[in-house]
Design a protein around this nucleic acid. Sequence first.
DNA 1: CAGGTTTTCCTATCACCATTCGGACTTTAC
DNA 2: GTAAAGTCCGAATGGTGATAGGAAAACCTG
Lengths: 208, 208
Amino acid sequence: MVIGKPVRDRRAERHEATKEEILDAAWDIARTEGLAAVSLRDIATRVGMRPPSLYTYFDSKLAIYDAMFAQGAQQFADAEPWDELTGDVRHDLALMFRTFIGFCAEDQARYQLLFQRTIPGFEPSPESFAISQASLGRVVEQLERYGVTDPRSIDLFTALGTGLASQQLSNEPGGDRWIRLIDDATEMYLHHMETTNQRATAKGRAAR
Amino acid sequence: MVIGKPVRDRRAERHEATKEEILDAAWDIARTEGLAAVSLRDIATRVGMRPPSLYTYFDSKLAIYDAMFAQGAQQFADAEPWDELTGDVRHDLALMFRTFIGFCAEDQARYQLLFQRTIPGFEPSPESFAISQASLGRVVEQLERYGVTDPRSIDLFTALGTGLASQQLSNEPGGDRWIRLIDDATEMYLHHMETTNQRATAKGRAAR
DNA sequence: CAGGTTTTCCTATCACCATTCGGACTTTAC
DNA sequence: GTAAAGTCCGAATGGTGATAGGAAAACCTG
């Protein structure tokens, strides 16, 4: 018989598992009732506890939001399509737009938590914020590989992305209307790249 | 001495004045503490009442939000620059973007109420919603005068507008960086118009 | 001006919310 | 076995929006 892990780890493991369970319940409520409707009572009910017991795992309700933010930011990082880039600017730009907007549309509550700052007292902690910033940084790096170095052009890219996302979210899901909208946006931004930047060409091979 | 209005009107007038006073207090709180931090208690304190007395003027807290929404939508309609259009597409598009973004940046709480749907149970009433829709309709009409009739191109326009707005809101106010960003966006959208639509020309005289 | 009616505003109360405190009970460490 | 650490709960606090019922004021009508 193999010697098990030190007992101390078992306890820490269970602690982490319970935290996950709490966050899962919180996400569940956020997705069905809305992000702002998440209450400690409801969370506690779902995990079979009383509200004060949650404070064993999180310092406050805002700390729960922060942990959710960190999870969402990590999912955002995992969703980025770095391994699907081909080096064709047109293809890659459309893919980046589509990935970002698809990610936003996938979960309205997550989108609201990550990209709209709307929960009254909530500000992501520096650690959580760093996760989301790293993802955006990788996007900027990718843009720079295509010759987009002007800050204004980068702003324009993110503005287009967030605009498309909010546009998509206010429409009914499904349908391919928004996919063609993204293609239009890609085409439009490509021309902007070609007229304002030097190295950008429609057939550049700058990927990775 | 002129015969005054019937006394009944005096009472109705005062009722309306008090409603205005309540809404002013609500806006004040929304701008300083945040839209979600508006509480009946704070409103009541500012207007010198007890919280239940507010129910004489509004059916619920959400009704107050709805009245604020209607006010904001009306301000949006009033802000539209129809009398400053010149007929030059480049100038007019930039002006429309700038007006919209300026309006959004002017008051974060108003922007959040009008364009981000983030208050838990709040949905604007049909009457209030109609006010905001009418403004957007006039923008679409204006676009059509420039030959933009494709729904996707219209979506692209609004996406660009909302994206620029959220971009502007997340940056520090002041500075002319965002003005030049708008010029870039205008230039970019102009090219999109020229390549996808027929009648659009950089010097069209379609205004009003 | 006297009557009843409507409007306004209040106190008291309820249900729900996040949070704190202190204690009981279980698990782990030595 | 005993001390320490971790877990969970009941009770209580102060905040929220909302309702009920009553007192006072304003108003309209005879």
